[in-house]
């Protein structure tokens, strides 16, 4: 390996690592706020990438149908609850959020898909279709079990992952897709060739991380999410409902997931089940941070990206083995730095 290849691999690793870092942040966020280990994060990556790919082909993405169906399911659940609590005043809001809005998005996608709009508009449309699925998934699968143990929530996560992967297959088929790069530009800096796409990925990731930081530090909703993560009972007592916090964190996670998919789709071919492995690499990073520290999780994810880049150069067949085996030294290290055996949770 010469220096040029080494530097190329660093660039490659950091580009993927930036995406893993975003996913790691979303996973830490969701876990801290809701105690959900969000395995289906990867499916949002897939849905983001493949929805955009469908739009590029001028086809109506199947996810728009899913949004409509999920909306109707949420409507049924919410209406039943409103009637049980005798809260009829909620009905118009429910109908607007979960019937009219998804139907409008569906209509928009139907109209816009064949037009093959500019890339930016397609990206925007992709986000409008995919992101609302986040809070809906929370409402349907997790909210009824908000007090369950981490273990039960994890099994739910895996079940949701199963269902969403299968739906991905229905909507997008078994064929993989790749979307065109945001930028074909290349710059030569000495031995290093910097690609425009890498800069896009890293720039967007950085902007999103700064955005998240500002959101958590300076907005009342950001503070409410932090409060829920620190003390769930305390948060309820000041009027922050766990359902609201859950939906908000799932919205953010879906946004991050879909954006990651949009960023990664030009770099690698995405199949209906690719998101799972992408998301899990974010997880390896998040576990480095103990699922609590945002900066360490992001750093861990960058490390995963670099390791993967070098592994695919040296032993490409064993790439996944090497990346996922990284978790073993991490667990060893954590088990020797954690001194107490935690009692089972309530």
């Amino acid at each position: 390996m010469n220096a040029q290849i080494a530097i190329f691999l660093v660039q490659d690793g950091l580009t993927n690592g930036a995406i893993y870092a975003l996913l790691a942040l979303a996973l830490v966020l969701v876990f801290a706020v809701t105690r959900v280990i969000f395995i289906p994060q990867g499916e949002f990556v897939t849905y983001g990438a493949l929805t955009l790919a469908s739009l590029q082909l001028g086809k109506l993405p199947g996810t728009a149908w899913l949004l409509l169906a999920a909306g109707i399911a949420v409507t049924a659940v919410e209406l039943a609850q409103a009637l049980r609590l005798g809260a009829a005043e909620r009905i118009p809001g429910i109908l607007f959020k979960y019937v009219i809005f998804p139907a409008a998005v569906m209509g928009l996608a139907w109209w816009a898909a064949p037009l093959k709009l500019a890339l930016t508009l397609q990206v925007l449309l992709t986000l409008i279709v995919v992101v609302p699925l986040g809070p809906m998934v929370y409402r349907l699968a997790y909210q009824p079990l908000a007090n369950a143990s981490v273990l039960v929530l994890l099994i739910i996560s895996v079940a949701v992952h199963f269902a969403m992967t299968g739906l991905g297959l229905v909507f997008f088929g078994a064929e993989g897709s790749r979307t065109p790069a945001f930028s074909d530009a290349h710059w030569n800096l000495g031995v290093l060739t910097v690609s425009g796409q890498s800069l896009w990925v890293m720039g967007t990731s950085l902007a999103l991380i700064v955005g998240l930081f500002l959101f958590f530090e300076h907005t009342i909703y950001g503070k409410a999410l932090r409060a829920t993560a620190i003390n769930r009972v305390g948060a309820r007592l000041v009027g922050v409902s766990p359902a609201m916090a859950g939906k908000l964190s799932f919205t953010l996670a879906a946004l991050i997931g879909a954006l990651s998919g949009i960023l990664i789709a030009p770099i690698t071919t995405i199949y209906y089940d690719s998101g799972f492995l992408v998301g899990l690499k974010g997880f390896v990073g998040a576990i480095v941070g103990g699922l609590v520290s945002y900066p360490i999780a992001a750093a861990g994810a960058l490390l995963v990206g670099l390791l993967e880049a070098y592994a695919s150069f040296w032993a490409s067949a064993y790439k996944e083995v090497i990346v996922f085996t990284l978790i073993i030294p991490v667990l060893i290290w954590r088990s020797f730095t954690t001194h107490h055996i935690e009692d089972e949770e309530e």
Partner: peptide, 13 residues
């Protein structure tokens, strides 16, 4: 380690 590391570890290996 606390409960959720085991399942995550099992997914990885």
């Amino acid at each position: 380690l606390s409960g959720h590391y085991l399942p995550l570890g099992t997914i990885a290996w």
